Amino acid sequence: GETKIIYHLDGQETPYLVKLPLPAERVTLADFKGVLQRPSYKFFFKSMDDDFGVVKEEISDDNAKLPCFNGRVVSWLVSA
């Protein structure tokens, strides 16, 4: 499998796309960081919350699996 991750960088209009050679349910924050090489950023991901619906959730645990929608991951990188 392959996972497409779209990421928005510090408010830039056009998002970036990276592809990881892993199925979406196995991709972790560490996998994503390894491709990006951007150490001083906070990582937020499109996520579903039972109370609020669609939210941007910050993930900082490198072992955390990334939230996935239709085989895609959507993220926002914010300068720390």
Rank of each mutant, 00 (worst) to 15 (best):
G1C: 11
G1F: 14
G1H: 01
E2C: 12
E2H: 10
E2Y: 12
E2L: 08
T3R: 04
I5H: 06
I5Q: 03
I5R: 02
I6W: 11
Y7E: 05
Y7H: 02
Y7F: 09
Y7M: 07
Y7A: 01
Y7Q: 00
H8E: 00
H8M: 07
L9N: 01
G11M: 04
Q12L: 09
Q12H: 14
T14W: 06
T14H: 15
T14C: 11
T14I: 13
P15S: 11
P15Q: 12
Y16L: 13
L17T: 15
V18I: 12
V18W: 04
K19H: 12
K19W: 08
K19P: 02
P21C: 08
P21M: 07
L22D: 05
P23Y: 06
P23G: 02
P23M: 00
A24N: 07
E25Q: 08
E25N: 12
R26M: 09
V27G: 03
A30F: 01
A30T: 02
A30W: 06
D31F: 02
F32Q: 01
V35Q: 09
V35W: 03
V35F: 12
V35M: 09
V35S: 09
R38M: 13
R38P: 08
P39D: 15
P39R: 12
P39H: 13
S40A: 12
S40G: 14
S40N: 14
F43R: 01
F44C: 03
F44W: 09
F44Q: 02
F45I: 00
F45L: 02
K46W: 09
M48S: 15
M48A: 15
M48V: 14
D49E: 12
D49C: 13
D50F: 04
G53Q: 15
G53E: 14
V55Y: 14
E57W: 06
E57L: 14
E58G: 02
E58D: 00
I59D: 00
I59Q: 00
I59H: 04
S60Y: 08
S60I: 08
D62H: 00
D62I: 02
D62A: 01
D62P: 05
N63M: 07
N63R: 09
N63I: 02
A64Q: 12
K65S: 10
K65C: 10
K65M: 09
K65L: 12
K65N: 10
L66H: 07
L66K: 04
L66M: 04
L66W: 05
P67F: 04
P67D: 04
P67V: 02
C68K: 00
C68S: 13
F69Y: 13
F69A: 05
F69I: 11
N70S: 05
N70M: 08
R72K: 14
R72S: 14
V73P: 01
V74E: 14
V74L: 07
V78Y: 13
V78W: 09
